[in-house]
């Protein structure tokens, strides 16, 4: 997978590139937005990571120009976090995802990976993983035929993780999707919910399906 990072702060660009390269993504860096359109038009990139505050340039207008020219490369916008309204604005301009600064590196990697394999999102009514099924109509979860009782929030969490199963989900990503927050709640809410969900799903059963990826987030998958 090939990623283009557009970031004017040299140090930020450096560690972002390093993190993406460690994940095995080929990563190019642009220090400003001037050459963005030509670069994306002339060579193939799977994902563009774009800082919204570029010197003399507004990241939003760049996304808009990309889309007007028919360049459909997924864009992840980086912006100062907690800037209410910027998220909506960014998504309206044609960006695909949004991450506020300061972000967790792992979160960035997780989202870049998600964007890179976009389109795989399942619309299935019954989600399955190993012997776990989740019926999204009746909201019923079963494992090995045994019904699992879920609180509303636990259900939403499980549905989100199952819909992105096999992919590591970052904490902020989960908070946005399951809690509908556009800000960092600054608590261990997600971790505690995951713990309880894991108890209900995995306790005394094999294989374990809900895994913690230390310092990064969580993933649901069957062990290889």
């Amino acid at each position: 997978m090939r990623v283009l990072v557009v970031e004017d702060d040299r140090k930020t660009a450096l560690f972002v590139r390093k993190a993406l390269q460690t994940e095995g993504f080929a990563t190019d860096v642009l220090g400003d937005g001037d050459a963005l359109l030509e670069t994306v038009a002339s060579s193939h990139f799977d994902v563009v990571v774009l800082d919204i505050m570029l010197p003399g340039r507004d990241g939003l207008s760049l996304v808009r120009q990309m889309r007007e020219r028919g360049l459909e490369t997924p864009v992840l916008l980086l912006t100062a976090r907690g800037e209410v309204g910027e998220r909506v604005e960014g998504l309206n301009a044609g960006a695909d995802d949004y991450l506020g600064k300061p972000f967790a590196l792992a979160e960035l990697v997780a989202r870049v990976r998600a964007l890179g394999r976009r389109g795989g999102d399942t619309k299935a009514v019954v989600l399955r993983l190993s012997d776990l099924t989740l019926d999204t109509v009746s909201r019923l979860a079963r494992r090995g035929g045994q019904a699992i009782d879920l609180a509303p929030r636990e259900y939403r969490l499980l549905e989100f993780l199952l819909r992105s199963s096999g992919r590591i989900c970052g904490r902020m990503e989960i908070v946005e999707a399951v809690w509908d927050y556009d800000f960092d709640p600054g608590t261990n809410l997600v971790d505690v919910y995951i713990m309880r969900l894991r108890e209900k799903l995995d306790a005394g059963r094999k294989p374990k399906l809900l895994h913690t990826v230390r310092g990064i987030g969580y993933v649901m998958k069957e062990p290889a």
């Binding site: 993190a19 600064k101 972000f103 590196l105």
Partner: peptide
């Protein structure tokens, strides 16, 4: 608050990299 975010981003990113 805007200016503080860039160094915070750098610090967080570098520490996370170092922790790896």
């Amino acid at each position: 608050s805007h200016e503080l975010k860039t160094p915070l981003t750098v610090m967080r990113g570098q520490i996370e990299t170092a922790l790896g």
